[in-house]
Design a protein around this nucleic acid. Sequence first.
DNA 1: GGTTGCATGTAAATGGTTACATGATTGT
DNA 2: ACAATCATGTAACCATTTACATGCAACC
Lengths: 184, 184
Amino acid sequence: MDVKTVCLGILNFGDASGYEIKKALEEGPFAHIHAASYGSIYPALNALSAQGYAECRQMTQDKRPDKKIYSITDAGRRALQESLLVTPAPDSFRSDFLFILFFAELLPPDRLAELIDQRIAWYRENLERMEQCNLESPGHSFVHGMGQAIYRAAAEYLERNRDQVLENPTVDDSGKETTTALAG
Amino acid sequence: MDVKTVCLGILNFGDASGYEIKKALEEGPFAHIHAASYGSIYPALNALSAQGYAECRQMTQDKRPDKKIYSITDAGRRALQESLLVTPAPDSFRSDFLFILFFAELLPPDRLAELIDQRIAWYRENLERMEQCNLESPGHSFVHGMGQAIYRAAAEYLERNRDQVLENPTVDDSGKETTTALAG
DNA sequence: GGTTGCATGTAAATGGTTACATGATTGT
DNA sequence: ACAATCATGTAACCATTTACATGCAACC
């Protein structure tokens, strides 16, 4: 699912500019599903226009820079519908946080505590923002609810196990022999 | 957190070959934290050796291709510890599944059901595999437990809400005017 | 006077993945 | 006979990010 398809999907919800698409992807309804930078959004919108999947009208604004509002076309709607039918690629997930946590024993305990507390705060903030959010479609509600369920579980886990991992004394690994223990 | 650092981290757990590192990343203890392909792992291991962060010894095996077993060096351990102290980049997450679900109304109901059921099965399989898994360090247990908590929440959510989203009649969007509704 | 928000865009660099090349062994 | 597992590596390709370029308005 490339940025072009993502933009098309957002346009299917309503007309938008590149700037607004970015916002939808980071704070709006599509937050945490697929991030993208301006460097990929603007070229994607140009490509969509060139293919006839989107139309663009210029908007001169008062006391604001000009805007380019994109609308999805019938061809675009058809293309979107088609791309929704392909087998979805497996989720791609990368977490520096979890990677670092894996080596909890190698971290200064106060740093570990800071890391976990920041993460709890992040989940809580997002949960709050998500709760006061108007849902426009069944699909939106479903995905939104799933996100909340996951964040709630993550936050609760961190809160419950925070002290346990902090109490564990930091292992002094000098002279510790390394054994291959990667299976399972 | 690039593939080089990830390899270094895995080597800190124990000696391994490139092939074994890949396995650790997809089925082993590091599964679902950071994926990588051979095309990035092998060059990373070469770079690690060139920098003196890892050492390599050739292993001629019986009835198997030769192996190159890498070990982390003291310099490598120091480099790893340093990279664990930097502020972690925000998690990067991309889900075709959630993106598609967002447009549940545009999908054939049977396709929607198939998608959700496959996903539930995926979570359940992984949960089972994770339960019968030996944990080697406090960090490992912590991350592992968090992964389980999240997968359990996701699976339960899908099971609870599966029928609700399927019962919702598919909206016929012909002639529906599009309004900008991306905020919040 | 500095930062944030609005607004669009490009070029270079990055950091990967995919496909290819090779080949023995074991299981179906 | 065919697929899968083990095992390493390269080169071409790809999508996307980062940094740069520009500029006005509002707020503190």
